[in-house]
Design a protein around this nucleic acid. Structure first.
Lengths: 147, 147
DNA sequence: ATGCATGCAAAGACTTTGCAAATTC
DNA sequence: GAATTTGCAAAGTCTTTGCATGCAT
């Protein structure tokens, strides 16, 4: 499973003289098996389902490693909680989040991307990424609310 | 100083039977006297400069109150640190942050705002705000880097 | 063999909460 | 006077670090 991500990790490790270990494999499988947008705790729980011996510190350390290897992306919720998203073969996207039920829609909008480039030019900045989160109420929650 | 913000706070407090206290005034002055984008610690330090007796818990509690009163806006950095921004008479804006020196440019781009509305419509969501942060390198840092 | 990685537990950073005393209305 | 607020310290979270042991190379 997840052969490609595993190859990415192995290459990353080899490049810096680090080691492929059982714990790293387990955390990788656990992380990839979950939907994107998970907390360290979610990952720990999933990892322990595969191997109960996994330590919490290992998950923290491993996820930092994955982030650096380009397999995960560190994000943060407004309440300060940290989350990780899948980053490999998971193109850039923005988020549309329902403030009631928490549902997240991922989208990419060319018009927005283009307008952002114009902003960079306007201020003479060199672009290096962005984060856009739209908040609102999803169709279901809107309906419930108007009743 | 800051008469208008003070009036907003007083009205907010009166509406719910809460009290205007010296500590709240102090924290308000401290917060407004700082530039936007500050941590609780920045505010605590500034507040203690005005009144050394201010407790840390009071600042936490008071900033939550201000956020609810519409005077402050809670934000969060990617490293998980919490920040507060001024929210009163400080229209909605997005951020363009220099990844090298940390400088922040606030901007509003009508094309982006418009494109966002289209995204809401596309997914049937009701809008309730957004957060956009562009990362890049400011002109100064770009120059330094290319040398 | 060497040195990186692990799990545990302790330590840290940040935030919240319980409480008695002080303050506001 | 009744009720909210405060500052302190204790308790909670979440995350990182130190260390002896275990493993990958």
């Amino acid at each position: 499973m997840h052969r490609e991500e595993r190859a990415v990790l192995e290459r990353y490790l080899k490049e810096r003289g680090l080691k492929m270990t059982a714990a790293r494999e387990t955390v990788l499988e656990a992380f990839l098996g979950l939907e994107t947008h998970v907390t360290v705790d979610d990952i720990l729980e999933a990892a322990r389902a595969l191997d109960p011996g996994i330590g919490q510190a290992t998950v923290f350390r491993t996820m930092k490693l994955f982030a650096d290897a380009g397999l995960a992306r560190e994000a943060c919720r407004d309440d300060g909680g940290r989350q990780y998203e899948h980053a490999w073969r998971h193109a850039h996207h923005d988020h549309l989040t329902c403030v009631d039920c928490g549902k997240v829609v991922e989208f990419v909008d060319p018009a927005i991307e283009k307008a952002q480039e114009a902003v960079y030019r306007r201020y003479g900045f060199t672009s290096s990424g962005h984060r856009l989160e739209l908040f609102g109420r999803c169709p279901d929650c809107s309906k419930k609310r108007s009743r």
